[in-house]
Amino acid sequence: MADVIDHPSRTAAAETRAATGYNFAYLDEQTKRMIRRAILKGVAVPGYQVPFGSREMPLPYGWGTGGIQVTAAVIGPDDTLKVIDQGADDTTNAVNIRSFFAKTAGVATTEKTVEASVIQTRHRIPETPLSEDQILVYQVPIPEPLRWLEPRETETRKMHALEEYGAMHVSLYEDIAKYGRITKSYNYPVKVNGRYVMSPSPIPKFDNPKMDRMPALQLFGAGREKRIYAVPPYTRVKSLDFEDHPFTIETWDQCCALCGAGDSYLDEVVTDDKGGKMYVCSDSDYCEQRREAGHVGDGGDPAYAARNQIPAGDAPAGDEPAGDEPAGDKQ
C-alpha cells in the first residue's frame, strides 16, 4: 500500500516566508538540494561521511550548525520538531535552535518525544524508543572517529576506503592493557552494518545500544567539518569491543530522584559543597511523562521515600554509581 502525499495546509509556511524575508527553513533552495543529495548518498552508504558544502549559519560553528542544516533540508510544514541538548528541551542551545525553526519555518514544536516527527539532538538519544515515523538528527562536532589517532583527512580517508581500522582496535586495546577496561565513556566508536567505523557523536556510551537496529532514520550533521552521514532504520550498529572485553554501559545504583526511573541516563546534581548530590533523569521529557503517570522518586532523600511508602521499585536508594554492566543481547 502506498502512502499518498497530498497538499498540506501551507498557509502557515507561506506566512512565515513573507514575515521573515528568508526562505522556508532559512536555507536557499540550491543549498537544500545540495544537502538533500548528500543525505541520500549518506543513507545509501551507511556510516560513510559524505562531504558537503556546509554554509555559514546565523549560529556559531560548534553550536549545531550541521544538525541545523540537516534539519532545514529535511523539515516540512507537516513536521513537528523537538530539539534537545543533554537530553533536555530547555537548555539554551535547544531553546535557540527550536525558536530558530519556529521563526523561519513556522513548524509546530513539541517537548514530547512521541509527538515529534523530527528530533534534533546534541549528546543524547531519547529514552523513549523511537518509531519508524521519526527522524533523529544528531549535531556532530568531530565526525571523524579516527581523528584522535590520525589528524590528517588525507590519511583517515584512505583508512576508511581500505577498511583499515587496526589502529583503532590497538588504541582501545592499549586502554585495556593499561586500565583493565576501555576508558572511553562517550563518543564511543561504532561499526555500521559491518563496514564503516563511525562516530556516534558525543552521546554517552549508555546510548550506543539504542542506535542498533533503531526503527527511526538517524542523520548526522557536522557543519564546521562539512560532513553528513546516516544510519538507515534497522541497521546494525555495533560498539567496538573485544571478545574478552565486551562493550559495557554505565549503570547507577540510584534511581531518578524525581520520577524514580531506574533505567534512564542520570545527571548528577550537586546539592551542596560537602559531597551532597542526587541523580535525576537527563531526558527531561521521559522524566515528566513518568511523573505525570504517577511515578515518584525519593526527592534525593531515601527517608522521604520510606515515610511516604514509595514502592521500592520506584525509589531504591544507594550510594555510588555501580559502574558499568554488560550491555546485553543488543550488542
Binding site: 553550536w63 543533554q86 539554551t92 549528546h123 543524547r124 563518543n187 558525543p202 554517552p204 541516563y265 545527571d267
Partner: peptide, 8 residues
C-alpha cells in the same frame, strides 16, 4: 555549552 551528560 553544557557538556554535563558527557561529564557524567
Amino acid at each position: 555549552l553544557p557538556h554535563y551528560v558527557d561529564f557524567q
